[in-house]
């Protein structure tokens, strides 16, 4: 009969976390900080608030570790928290009507570089990232999970807790919208 440990390879780490072992907390941070960074910075951009949100993601996870049943992978759980907190931050920004970090500088780059030599251009990635930021959050979330986290569509559906069909529709729609954004800036 399989034990919990056989069923969940993260069992030992979760046990150590629940026991309050500091090395386990550092291990989680080491294992998942890049993943959380990709999610949060993908959603919010490369701003200081992104790092604050990233810290909050782990603090929420640590605070709720006693209630963590292990029915989802730690990575899934963290990505879900990261997505939710990023959306909260976007809402906060919206309320404050703050201008996003990209500002005029990157906007200018977007306009001037996109039509030039897009594939080889080192800044191309930055331009596309900027365009991704312009997508509505519901599309952005899926693009981030797919392009930055390399999640399968099934995993993305699990993280976002929406049907697989919706994920696929939104992803396809997001790609079209992204092209429109990039085109509009290359004119």
């Amino acid at each position: 009969m399989p034990t919990n440990q056989d069923q969940n390879p993260e069992f030992e780490l979760i046990t150590l976390l629940k026991d309050g072992k500091e090395r386990a907390y550092f291990k989680v941070l080491g294992l998942y900080k890049d993943q959380v960074a990709r999610t949060v910075k993908g959603m919010l951009g490369n701003v200081q608030e992104a790092e604050d949100v990233g810290q909050e993601v782990f603090i929420r996870f640590f605070n709720s570790i006693d209630n963590f049943k292990g029915d989802a992978k730690i990575s899934t759980y963290l990505t879900r928290i990261a997505m939710n907190l990023s959306l909260n931050e976007l809402e906060r920004r919206k309320r404050k009507r703050r201008i996003f970090y990209t500002g005029d500088k990157l906007e200018e780059k977007l306009i001037s570089d996109i039509g030039a030599n897009p594939i080889e251009n080192v800044e191309r990635k930055e331009i596309v990232r900027t365009a991704i930021i312009k997508l509505a959050p519901k599309y952005r979330k899926i693009v981030i999970l797919r392009a930055l986290q390399e999640y399968s569509f099934k995993e993305a559906a699990e993280v976002l807790q929406i049907p697989l069909g919706t994920v696929l529709s939104r992803y396809a729609r997001a790609l079209h919208k992204l092209r429109e954004i990039l085109k509009s800036h290359s004119k």
Binding site: K33, E126, V128, A147, L148
Partner: peptide, 21 residues
């Protein structure tokens, strides 16, 4: 359009772990 983005430098600062703790 979005290929190759996974190599982008979406990282936190070096002392991120300590800040969180």
């Amino acid at each position: 359009q979005i290929e190759g983005l996974n190599t982008a430098e979406f990282i936190f600062s070096d002392d991120f772990e300590f800040k969180v703790m």
